[in-house]
């Protein structure tokens, strides 16, 4: 068995375990930390798929920024206790069934739409996934969305600051 396949299996197992841990962990802090681990393992998958830049960005943005923010809020609001009231068992069963339903439907979709067609892939180019080629693409074909993204961020920043300060005034 090739080394890549072994890595894939290990990473996949890690990803799923961590994701399940996020969902079922009683302590929100543990959930957050497990989510960071999930992100790391997904970044590992990205590396396997020759997406080095995206892998790095994933770690920086998610594991670095978003998760820190989440954990920060958890600490700030003093929610790091596992005192979350549990839902009734009935709701849990329905939720599980629904999630299973989604999974089955998606598998069915893949069976019908994806597998039926002959999926002959194309060989990847020499510079696939390099920052250079990604940048070239980003600043030529996708320049408009890229610039618009900055406006989105500005709006998000303004929104976050606005929401944060007004609540103080209200008090």
């Amino acid at each position: 068995m090739e080394i890549q396949n072994i890595i894939f299996i290990i990473l996949s197992a890690l990803t799923l375990m961590c994701a399940l841990g996020v969902v079922f962990s009683k302590n929100p802090i543990h959930s957050g930390l497990l989510l960071v681990l999930t992100m790391f393992s997904i970044s590992g998958h990205y590396l396997l798929l020759h997406a080095q830049f995206v892998a790095i960005v994933n770690i920086i943005v998610y594991a670095g920024a978003v998760m820190v923010l989440l954990l920060f809020v958890l600490m700030l609001l003093n929610l790091n206790k596992d005192n979350e009231p549990q839902k009734s068992i009935m709701v849990k069963i329905i939720g599980t069934l629904s999630a299973g339903g989604i999974m089955i439907s998606l598998v069915a979709v893949s069976k019908i739409f994806l597998v039926q067609k002959s999926m002959q892939g194309r060989p990847i180019a020499e510079d696939f996934g390099y920052v250079k080629s990604l940048g070239a693409l980003l600043f030529t074909d996708y320049i408009l969305p890229f610039e618009l993204a900055s406006i989105l961020f500005l709006a998000a920043i303004v929104g976050a600051v606005f929401l944060g300060t007004r609540s103080v005034e209200n008090k």
Binding site: I102, S105, V109
Partner: peptide, 16 residues
């Protein structure tokens, strides 16, 4: 949220 998920499931099934 539950209705939402059920809606997605039925939508996918409708396509299928």
């Amino acid at each position: 949220l539950l209705y939402f998920v059920l809606g997605i499931i039925s939508f996918i099934l409708l396509i299928l």
